[in-house]
Design a protein around this nucleic acid. Sequence first.
DNA 1: GTCATAAGTTTGGTCATACCAAATGGGGGC
DNA 2: GCCCCCATTTGGTATGACCAAACTTATGAC
Lengths: 237, 237
Amino acid sequence: MQNQPNPTRDSRAADVVIRQLEEQIVSGALPNGKPLPAERDLMENFGASRTVIREAISTLSSRGLIESKPRFRPIVRKPDYETVLHATGNIVQHLLTEPGGVKNLYDSRVFVERALVRDAALSATKDDIAALKASLAANQASIPDSLAFYQTDVAFHGVLYSIPKNPIFPAIHAGYTAWLAPHWVKMIRSPERNEMNYKAHQAILTAILERDPAAAEEALKSHLVDAWDHVRTTFSS
Amino acid sequence: MQNQPNPTRDSRAADVVIRQLEEQIVSGALPNGKPLPAERDLMENFGASRTVIREAISTLSSRGLIESKPRFRPIVRKPDYETVLHATGNIVQHLLTEPGGVKNLYDSRVFVERALVRDAALSATKDDIAALKASLAANQASIPDSLAFYQTDVAFHGVLYSIPKNPIFPAIHAGYTAWLAPHWVKMIRSPERNEMNYKAHQAILTAILERDPAAAEEALKSHLVDAWDHVRTTFSS
DNA sequence: GTCATAAGTTTGGTCATACCAAATGGGGGC
DNA sequence: GCCCCCATTTGGTATGACCAAACTTATGAC
């Protein structure tokens, strides 16, 4: 009664445990957000050794189906679009340390946001406009406070990612924010600088309100390119 | 002389092994492409048990720094942009099974490629144009052979992703191709259908040659939307 | 009755050892 | 030089044990 390897052609016993746990998670048999059963219970349920149970948990954890902090019970997590980002975080870090890595990522962000503002200018709904106005107002209000300004800045750009109504885009925004932030923090911040960025945001929104995609794209582009140059000059010794 | 845990504040011993292996890989001490030392050697090198060595290997494998097939020696892999995609494959699969998952991914592809062709129309170089023409010719030549047509089709779109000269985009293309392909294979293919798609490609290239971003974007959009509708109608019973 | 505290139990992280089957490497045999 | 066979190496798994941290429960002060 040990492990009749099972129908599927898996060489590793760990794989079948992974597969079964995976299925129990997506099916809801293991409720999302709740802790996984103890390893010693799982090894009884699956008739496997603790070795394979632990490997399965480790693997699923890296796949984002389980969230495990060092000494705590692993938590079941049904994957969403942001999970994908989290899972890639470590690798991306390596790529960012390579020459041009940050630049490539930033350029891709500029590329995406250019398309986003163009899209916004063409098809933003009333609600989208309202959200943009609200976040811009919050952005303006926090000009004196650089930390708050950074946060409302991120939020303003975030609204752009929400306009296509595709959950992939907010996830991408989260990725850009998380991955680029570390290379951003050392940037000199000041109310003057914030004022500049706020005006850039304002210009973008104005163009969107005027349904002028070219102007919106141009405003966004110069805004981001300017920000990049600012970081570059801040760093270059 | 066991393991004086070491300066950094890591609760798990596995983490320090992970960190060290990671460093040895990126530094080149463990040459890229070559097999990792045997687990029993590693446990001696690091003064750790085989348990933690295996866990470290497993983790690094999931991070893409190591490529390990079931019963073979793990291979050292310096991560590149495509590694990120590979690492996320499993999670993405889950998301694609959810309602609207494929649609969301496909929409994001349309979004990106619209921006790509627009960009191509504005800034494609002579070499880019040449590559587009070559891949379009190959595409035309393979109209009678649906499998070959699919491949040259992918290649044509792939050229678009290469135009920004940002390695992130080809990786994204690889992702779209790998993830959407399974939901594509059942599509009815025929020389007639291939002919249609070829002409769509031709229209895109024409617009790019004429430096007309709006026309290029429109041609790309209708091409992809049409392809999606075709798959939909093929499936709907 | 509430709450802080202490004792006891559970549980994840690690180690050591052993066994098996598949992969590897080395020697003949051709 | 090439191929096949065999001894060795190596990854995958199973046990069993131990520790420290987390969790639970009992306990006592207020």
